[in-house]
């Protein structure tokens, strides 16, 4: 890739620039800051759309009483049950149980705090989900 071919499309970098390696006129490699590449934006949006869809599915399931708010916030934090378990210091099978609304509703303050801490939320936010899709 030549310096002039380094893409400068506004992309996933939100105004920041990343370093690309490209050849200058004399064929020597230099670092060229790039604002991003359209291709990146497309594949990133594709992946994020899938995440957003999973989150919305979880949100509806919580409002319908099929899953606990923990399931929603776990999805929002891009975590699976195993990763959340490791981050919260709760065993994996207990995390799975806590995805059920009835079990979740009986959780101790201490356990709720562990989850809140692991997900970077307050306990109040952990126990509810947004009324409308984000």
């Amino acid at each position: 890739m030549k310096i002039n071919d380094v893409p400068q499309d506004d992309s996933v970098l939100e105004g920041r620039r990343r370093a690309c390696y490209a050849e200058d006129d004399r064929g020597a490699y230099v670092v060229v800051p790039s604002r991003g590449w359209e291709v990146e934006r497309i594949v990133n949006e594709h992946a994020r759309a899938a995440l957003a869809e999973a989150l919305e599915t979880a949100r509806r399931a919580v409002l319908a009483g099929r899953l606990s708010p923990l399931a929603y916030h776990m999805t929002a934090g891009q975590m699976g049950a195993r990763l959340l378990a490791a981050n919260a210091g709760v065993s994996w099978w207990r995390v799975r149980r806590h995805l059920r609304p009835k079990v979740f509703a009986r959780l101790s303050r201490d356990t709720l705090e562990r989850y809140a801490q692991a997900l970077g939320l307050s306990v109040e936010d952990l126990t509810r989900v947004p009324e409308t899709a984000s």
């Binding site: 890739m1 380094v6 996933v12 990343r18 370093a19 690309c20 390696y21 490209a22 490699y29 590449w37 291709v39 990146e40 594949v43 990133n44 594709h46 992946a47």
Partner: peptide, 21 residues
């Protein structure tokens, strides 16, 4: 496919999955 391409370009490879680097 999106995942393969993201790993190649998005996450800081200097372009083309480290091939330019």
């Amino acid at each position: 496919v999106a995942q393969v391409v993201r790993m190649q370009e998005e996450i800081g490879t200097g372009g083309a999955g480290f091939r330019f680097l």
